[in-house]
Design a binder for these strands. Structure first.
Lengths: 118, 118
DNA sequence: GTAATTGGTTACGTATAGGTAACTACTATA
DNA sequence: TATAGTAGTTACCTATACGTAACCAATTAC
């Protein structure tokens, strides 16, 4: 009985830690975009068509602060040559992302396509 | 090349579908609480100590609308006897939750305990 | 009869997440 | 020389997520 409650509390804490990092409309999409290779600012923007430069810039900075992605400025000569990539910590999200995607597809089939739309 | 982009777009869509449902500060915690058995309003509130009745009520309704949980009012005689439980759709989230928790624990070890706190 | 518990609701306020649009500085191309 | 593309920044505004506090109706316990 008490063990069950302690386990529940532990899981609630862990979920908060994780959510703090991936919460928000844009972070998961940005990470997904970067699983397809290192990308530049504009490339990410072209993947996620409806993100504004402001939000992209802001969320990239946040993810960098959390060590999920890293920003590299190759070739000092050319100013506009920046690349974003997943860190190993960022890559460690891949199982979680996979489950999220699986469930998203499953959910769409279960609910959206059956017109039980909420 | 083009296949890669299409796959990326597909995943971006799927992640949006999933995020729409589980987005927010309280939904995942509520679902976690309910993985430990059917619970009453007050029991969930006692699990998630800092949620207000307003938010709990609001998020329970939202999750019910998405068919993730169901509300059952046993025993018509007694008014205050309501139970919330996960639907099968809600239970289908368990792998995703597991990965979220695993990653949350991993992240805490990687970042928080090493005082590279963002 | 009164207090406590159950399962909420309502009104109100704040904070933050997110959107829009315009602008910057530099480079490359035509 | 003008235009377009690079990678953003800034100011401003809105919507909604979330918090606080008080309240309600019914039931049960004292």
């Amino acid at each position: 009985m008490k063990q069950k409650e302690q386990l529940c509390q532990f899981k609630l804490m862990a979920s908060r830690d994780a959510l703090e990092v991936i919460q928000g409309k844009w972070r998961i999409p940005i990470i997904i975009s970067l699983t397809y290779g290192n990308k530049r600012f504009g490339e990410i923007q072209r993947d996620i068509t409806d993100i504004s430069p402001k939000m992209l810039s802001q969320e990239l900075k946040a993810l960098e602060a959390y060590k999920i992605i890293s920003r590299t400025h190759y070739d000092r000569e050319r100013v506009s040559n920046v690349e974003y990539s997943l860190t190993t910590l960022g890559q460690s999200l891949h199982k979680l992302l996979e489950e999220l995607l699986n469930w998203g597809v499953f959910f769409r089939n279960e609910i959206v396509n059956k017109n039980i739309t909420p």
